[in-house]
């Protein structure tokens, strides 16, 4: 089982890293979502894997590590909040400029801010 979890984490990480290196906003968002899966499962698995031992107290049973689960639970919800935020930012950027490149160098007709008059001061 450990091998399956580790390979899944590795695969999701690789996919996430590949996607965040793309040039458009949507793949980068998907890549970040993949990385959140990978990181969440990673943290969860750092409590070691166990089958059929949920951390619900019953009489005299063994339990898996509840702490990593608690950490990951909030992480899942927070990563939803962050995904929603960057989706809106990407959407806003696209609607403002009609371009969904994320690198400054690739954006079409970058809206250059007025050059600050520092030199003339």
């Amino acid at each position: 089982m450990e091998l399956l979890v580790a390979s899944a984490v590795g695969m999701m990480t690789a996919c996430g890293v590949y996607l965040i290196l793309r040039k458009r906003s949507f793949p980068v968002i998907v890549g970040l979502a993949m990385l959140s899966y990978a990181v969440n499962v990673f943290i969860f698995a750092s409590g070691r894997v166990a089958i059929g031992l949920p951390p619900i107290i019953t009489d005299g049973a063994a339990y898996t590590d509840p702490l990593t689960q608690a950490l990951v639970l909030t992480a899942i919800v927070i990563s939803f909040g962050m995904t929603a935020l960057i989706v809106m930012m990407a959407l806003g950027a696209f609607l403002e400029t009609g371009d969904d490149h994320i690198g400054m160098e690739e954006r079409e007709a970058p809206p250059l801010p007025a050059k600050p008059q520092e030199g003339a001061e």
Binding site: E2, L3, V5, A6, S7, V9, G10, M11, M12, T13, A14, C15, G16, V17, Y18, L21, R22, A38, F42, A45, S46, R48, V49
Partner: peptide
Amino acid sequence: RDGFIAAAAGLGIGALIYALMT
């Protein structure tokens, strides 16, 4: 190049968590 970086990252993370779990 990106594929190489991604593969290296995936292998590294996968190996790390495998080492941790075992």
